[in-house]
Nucleic acid binder design. Structure first.
Lengths: 250, 250
DNA sequence: CGGGTAATTGAGCTGGTTCAATCTGAGTGG
DNA sequence: CCACTCAGATTGAACCAGCTCAATTACCCG
C-alpha cells in the first residue's frame, strides 16, 4: 500500500489556503499557523488508518486523496474522493478514533491541523466556518447520492454517476473542460469506488464507449460525449447535482 | 406515502432538548425559542422531500425518522435512521436544497429549527456545538460503515451489520436490553436500508434464526442470541463500533 | 529484453432478484 | 361471532447481472 512516487513532487508555493470555493490566508494571521502544517505526500501513501487515534483534520491543497474502509477479507470500499479545497474529518463519535482511512491517490499536498487548533480557527473566523460548512454539505450530498446508487443502482448506473460526479467536481477546479477530464485512477479505483470488480468496470466502460456515451484516451482521459444520455443512465440531473455537490463561493 | 396514524400520538411534555447524549434547555433561555418549534408527526409522514428548498434542521425528540433518496423508477434507499437526539441537516452545498428526504417511520416528535436560528444557537453555545459535532461524527461513521457493506458486503453481512448497529444505537436510549430490542420496521424498511429486496431480507433473517444467531418474536422483536457470531458475519467489532457510532456525554 | 502492472476479453457460476403462490394477523362491518 | 380485506411475511422456482477464474494484450520502466 505504501507506494513509491512515480514522479518527483513539485507544487507551486501556496499563497493561500482554499476551503471549498473560498480562499483564506492572504494577509490573515491564521495563515502563518497553517504554513508549518503543510506537507507533501507521494501517491498511494496512507495518511491515516481506519481505527487509529486521529485527532486532526486534513485539508487537500493539491492532488487527489481518497477516504476508504476495508472489510476483514481485504476488500476495499472508497467512501469519497477528496479534491483540492476538500477537508477530511475522520473523527468518529468518541472524538478520537478515525472512522475511515485516508490515502493519497496522486502525489498531493495537504495541510494537517490538530482538532483543537482547527476548532479554534473555526470559532475565530465565521467565513472559514461557513466555507467548511459548505464543504461538509457538499460531501453529505455526494455520499447520499452514492449510497443510493450503491444500494439500488446497476453497474451502469453507478459508473455513469461516478463519471458525472467527478466531471462536475473537476469543473470548478479548472480540470474539466467541456466534459473532458483526466482521472488519475485505475479501473480498480473506480471499482472500489462503485462497489464493483475492476473487470466489470472495464466491460461497462467499453460498453459506454461502444454506445457513444463517452470516449476514452490513454485509458483514463475521459470525454463525456452525450451527457444527457449518460445522466439518464445515472438517473441524475447534472444541473441540480452540480448545485448540490459543488461548494459555492458563498 | 402520507400515512395515517394507527394510534394516537401521546408523548410526555418535553423538559429539555437532547442532542446526542447531552441534554439542553433546563433553565436555558434558548429552550424557550425551541418550544414553539416542536411538532408531532404521524408515522409515514414525509417531513421534507429530496430537492425541496429546506433551510432548516430537524431534531428528533421521540420516535424514529429515516432519511432517504429515491431513484427515478421509484426504488428507495434509506440513508440513515434518526433516533431521539439525532439531528437531520439535509442542506446540500448550495445552502438551501435538501439532499435527501426525511420521513417519520413511527409517530414522532421533532423540533424544527430554521438554519439561521440554528447557526446562532450553535455560535452562542459551545456545549451545544460540541454535542452537535458528536452527533454528526457518529452519523459520518455510520455512513462509512454502511457504505462499506453496501459496496462490498453480502446480504448476510449487510443485515447482520444493520441489526448490530441498531442494537448498539438503541442501547443508550434504554430501548435495547441485553441485545433484545424492538424494531418499528417492516422487512421492506430493512431492505431499503440494506439495498436488498424484502424477500431476501426475509430469507436471510430466517437463516439467522435457523442458525441460532438471532431470535424473533412478533416479527420485529429481535434478540441477538450470539453476538460474536453475528459480528463475525457482519465483519464488525461491537465494542469499537459502539464507540464510533454512539454519541458520548462529552 | 525482461518483469510487472493495468486493461481487455471469454466462459461459466452464483447470490440475489423477480414473479408468484400461500399464509398470517389485525381491522372492519354486519 | 364470522366473513372480508389488506398489508406484511414466508416460501418456491426460474432467471440474470455481476462475479470468478483464466488467458491475452498493452504499456511502462530498468
Amino acid at each position: 500500500m505504501t507506494g513509491h512516487a512515480p514522479i518527483p513532487i513539485q507544487f507551486a508555493e501556496p499563497a493561500c489556503l482554499r476551503i471549498g470555493a473560498v480562499e483564506f490566508g492572504t494577509g490573515d494571521p491564521a495563515l502563518h499557523s497553517f504554513r508549518k502544517n503543510i506537507q507533501t505526500v507521494p501517491a498511494n501513501r496512507l495518511l491515516l488508518q481506519d481505527g487509529d487515534d486521529s485527532g486532526k483534520i486534513i485539508i487537500v491543497m493539491d492532488g487527489w486523496l481518497a477516504t476508504s474502509k476495508s472489510s476483514l477479507n481485504g476488500e476495499v470500499q472508497l467512501i469519497d474522493f477528496l479534491l483540492p479545497g476538500d477537508v477530511a474529518d475522520p473523527t468518529s463519535a468518541d472524538g478520537k478514533t478515525a472512522g475511515f482511512s485516508v490515502e493519497a491517490v496522486t502525489d498531493a499536498r495537504v495541510c494537517v491541523i490538530p482538532l483543537p487548533a482547527w476548532h479554534s480557527l473555526l470559532a475565530a473566523s465565521a467565513p472559514l466556518a461557513r466555507a467548511h460548512e459548505h464543504v461538509q454539505a457538499a460531501e453529505r450530498s455526494r455520499l447520499s447520492e452514492r449510497m443510493l446508487r450503491l444500494g439500488r443502482g446497476s453497474a451502469e448506473g453507478r459508473i455513469a454517476y461516478a463519471l458525472i460526479e467527478l466531471c462536475l467536481r473537476l469543473k470548478p477546479l479548472g480540470l474539466s473542460e467541456n466534459c473532458a477530464f483526466h482521472l488519475p485512477l485505475t479501473q480498480r479505483h473506480i471499482g472500489d469506488f462503485t462497489g464493483l470488480t475492476a473487470v466489470h468496470v472495464c466491460r461497462t466502460l467499453r460498453r459506454f464507449v461502444r454506445n457513444g456515451l463517452v470516449e476514452t484516451a490513454d485509458h483514463m482521459d475521459i470525454r463525456i460525449n452525450d451527457l444527457s444520455a449518460l445522466a439518464d443512465v445515472a438517473g441524475a440531473e447534472p444541473d441540480r447535482l452540480a448545485a448540490e455537490i459543488t461548494p459555492v463561493p458563498d
